[in-house]
Amino acid sequence: MTAGRWATHAFLLVMALLWLFPLAYAVLASLRSYDYTAQHGYLSFGGFTLENYRNAWEQAGFTQKFLNSVIITVPAVLLTLALACAIAFVVARFSSRWNLVLLAVFTAANLLPPQALLIPVFRLFQRVEVPFWFSDSGTLLDSYWGLIIVNVAFQTGFCAFVLSNYMKTLPKELYESAMVDGASVWRQFWQLTLPLCRPPLAALATLEVTWIYNEFFWATVLMQSGDKYPVTSSLNNLRGQFFTDNNLVAAGSLIVAVPTLAIYFALQKHFVSGLTLGATKG
Rank of each mutant, 00 (worst) to 15 (best):
A7I: 08
A10E: 03
F11Y: 10
M15F: 14
L18I: 08
L20Q: 09
L23D: 00
L23Y: 04
A24Q: 05
L28I: 12
L31F: 07
S33L: 14
Y34F: 04
D35M: 14
F45G: 08
G47Q: 01
F48P: 07
Y53T: 04
A56D: 08
A56K: 08
Q64P: 02
Q64R: 15
T73M: 10
L78Q: 02
A82M: 11
I87N: 06
F89H: 08
V90T: 04
R97G: 14
R97W: 05
W98Q: 09
L100W: 07
A104K: 15
V105G: 00
N110V: 12
I119G: 11
P120R: 12
P120D: 07
L124C: 05
F125G: 07
Q126P: 01
R127W: 07
V128P: 00
V130F: 01
L141N: 10
G146C: 02
G146T: 11
I148L: 02
T156A: 09
C159R: 09
A160Y: 07
V162P: 05
L170E: 10
E173I: 06
E173R: 14
E173N: 05
L174S: 02
L174Q: 03
E176V: 13
M179L: 13
V180N: 10
V185Q: 05
L194F: 10
C197T: 03
R198H: 06
A203M: 12
W211H: 05
W218K: 09
T220E: 01
L222G: 06
L222T: 00
Q224K: 08
Q224P: 04
P230G: 06
P230A: 05
P230K: 00
T232I: 11
Q241D: 09
N246S: 13
A251W: 05
A251G: 06
I255P: 07
T260Q: 07
L261P: 04
A262F: 11
A266Y: 12
K269S: 15
H270C: 01
F271K: 04
V272L: 13
V272H: 12
S273Q: 15
L275C: 13
T280V: 15
